[in-house]
Design a protein around this nucleic acid. Structure first.
Lengths: 257, 257
DNA sequence: GTAGGACGATTGTAGGACAATATCAGAGGC
DNA sequence: GCCTCTGATATTGTCCTACAATCGTCCTAC
């Protein structure tokens, strides 16, 4: 399309290459991974809002690849639950329903409680050292903005997973849409909320360092139960937005072409 | 699909169409789903052993479709963890390592314990009725062969999930490779093992019917801890099988094709 | 006997074509 | 005036062909 043609028949017009992503286009065999990562970041960062359509032809243009890799990428994102795929209607960035958020948190609580327990009883010294290093930022007392916090939060939970050393579990955690939820929550992260969350992180880290599995798991549970409440509140707020002034958003920007 | 060719240029050897699956080839848009299901069943049933290669060109021949849908199907199976995809080397049916089995069971225990708890507190009468109906078979006293048992087992666990009414959880359970594990375990299902398992199912069902979440969850845990031990034993046996005395079990009954 | 290179098998990607389906807008009927 | 049916349009689903990249293997040369 548009430039597929350009790229080829031209002498690979340099212009085309300088497109969308500044990042170097990947080597053969890495195309799909590259597209998936690009889109995933766009979604997590909110650059692609829930409900945004992902049209194959647009993506072939944006990434200057053929439909094959694009379709493959979409399929993969769909498998991860980041987008929804409706037959003959294309893919859209998934918007979690309240029910889905509730269900996902119920699951996440169990998974992360397990991870905290495993982390607390982990012995491997070098993993414990890596853990300590990874969570360093949570001990900072400087105030955080929501974006900083989201990164710190993701890093913290991933560090726990890493220490727990259960590859399948870590893998599953990614599928549990925490980044998606977080991206859809953003607004509610007021300073008091952030501070409370950071304190909870410290308490969890402490229990893990103290090799106390029960405390680690219990504190993780509390932490996530609170997080679930925040997320649901955020969604409710967002929902009312859509309820009342659906018109505006839909018409203005959002919906489809 | 069996008809792509037919559909398009009229004659296209009927022979080609009469291949592998007798099942009716699907309508437009269902091709991928059809292939995925076919392969999934083959894997679950053991017709495709772990390690079997899945070569695209073979599959295009078998299903009489082009590479597009085949590749998409493989991707989907890969996302489900049923096959492994090595760059430029193709896909093979996944063989779980001992570590993976251990990790997956750790996770499954938490998930299903949660499901049992949720099921026990579920109120919806019609779902409870459906649950009771679905698990009916576990009350039979007639002896079971391993194949019957596997079906009954799958139905039982799925019934609990259904009663728990957490769609995400149910979805995740499928991704947790229980069928894969079961398929790779088959051989160790001796009558005493089966009977013990059935008894445990009854105990769980009883706790759920009695609306006792703690008991339901605890019994589910015990059940799966025992199952994990069986699975690990089976894998160990299987491993030695391949090494030294493949003979006995394999020849007697068990293995697959 | 090992290092290196040629070859074959298979996957990764491109590009073009057409069929099938969903969406939307306008024509016609009530 | 509102509803329904129909056609136009946009997009996806699938096929096909071709070529580049890569992995494995076998074969040769030293």
């Amino acid at each position: 399309m548009s430039n597929a043609a350009v790229r080829r028949n031209g002498k690979t017009s340099e212009t085309t290459q300088r497109r969308a992503r500044a990042a170097a286009p990947p080597a053969h065999g890495a195309t799909v991974a590259f597209i998936v990562e690009s889109l995933r970041e766009d979604i997590w960062a909110g650059r692609l809002e829930p409900g945004s359509r992902l049209v194959e032809s647009d993506l072939t243009a944006r990434f200057a690849v053929s439909r094959g890799p694009v379709r493959e990428s979409l399929r993969r994102l769909s498998a991860d639950g980041l987008i929804e795929h409706r037959p003959h209607r294309g893919a859209v960035v998934r918007r979690l329903t309240e029910r889905e958020i509730r269900e996902l948190f119920l699951i996440r609580i169990e998974m992360e409680a397990l991870a905290a327990r495993l982390a607390a009883v982990a012995e491997a010294p070098e993993r414990r050292a890596r853990f300590a290093a990874s969570i360093e930022p949570i001990h900072s007392d400087s105030p955080r903005n929501p974006c900083d916090y989201l990164k710190e939060n993701a890093a913290f939970h991933d560090a726990v997973m890493a220490l727990a050393d259960n590859l399948e579990l870590r893998d599953l955690a990614i599928r549990l849409q925490l980044p998606l939820i977080m991206a859809q929550v953003g607004d509610v992260l007021t300073p008091p909320v952030l501070e409370a969350s950071v304190r909870e992180h410290r308490a969890i880290a402490e229990a893990i360092s103290a090799r106390n599995p029960e405390a680690a798991s219990a504190r993780m549970r509390e932490h996530l139960e609170r997080a679930a409440a925040v997320a649901l509140a955020a969604r409710a707020a967002g929902a009312s937005d859509e309820g009342a002034s659906a018109s505006i958003q839909t018409i203005l920007g959002g919906k489809r072409r």
